[in-house]
């Protein structure tokens, strides 16, 4: 029985899950995918990679589909897709908030309590894509 889902995903975890959301693959291929998507900015250390794989198997985000010698292939599960989608929504919200904030004129004074003219009242919720 899978253990409790992870509370949040780190950048490394997110990219690994992203790799498996595209196709079934092995750990090394997932690491290559992450490095390629980030232009080499995210290089997954081997211990980080197999800790993530082990954790994802434990919580039921991945399932092992085949073993060929030392190479193991994994596929994302429905729980994994849900976790990936939830994290994606969270990141989109952050980006949308940041873009909305960037569109506001800069005020030199610190924000009063509640955000003032630039706070929650002034910012209409940004519809998520």
């Amino acid at each position: 029985m899978p253990k409790k889902a992870l509370e949040s995903l780190t950048e490394s975890m997110f990219y690994v899950l992203m790799a498996f959301s595209v196709a079934e693959c092995c750990g090394a291929e997932a690491a290559q995918f992450a490095a390629a998507r980030t232009g080499g900015a995210l290089r997954l250390g081997p211990a980080t990679l197999y800790t993530i794989l082990a954790k994802f198997l434990e919580v039921g985000y991945l399932t092992e589909t085949s073993v060929d010698g030392r190479k193991r292939t994994y596929a994302i599960t429905a729980a994994g897709r849900d976790a990936y989608a939830a994290e994606l929504r969270r990141l989109r919200r952050i980006v949308a908030d940041a873009e909305a904030a960037a569109a506001l004129p800069y005020a030199a004074k610190p924000l009063p309590e509640g955000g003032g003219a630039h706070g929650a009242a002034a910012l209409a919720p940004v519809p998520l894509p």
Partner: peptide, 22 residues
């Protein structure tokens, strides 16, 4: 225990939060 003598190789753990999980 792992060893690496290649200075250009990435760290074994590149994500401290994942190491904490381990």
């Amino acid at each position: 225990i792992y060893a690496c003598d290649d200075a250009a190789a990435p760290e074994l753990h590149t994500d401290p939060a994942v190491q904490a999980l381990q």
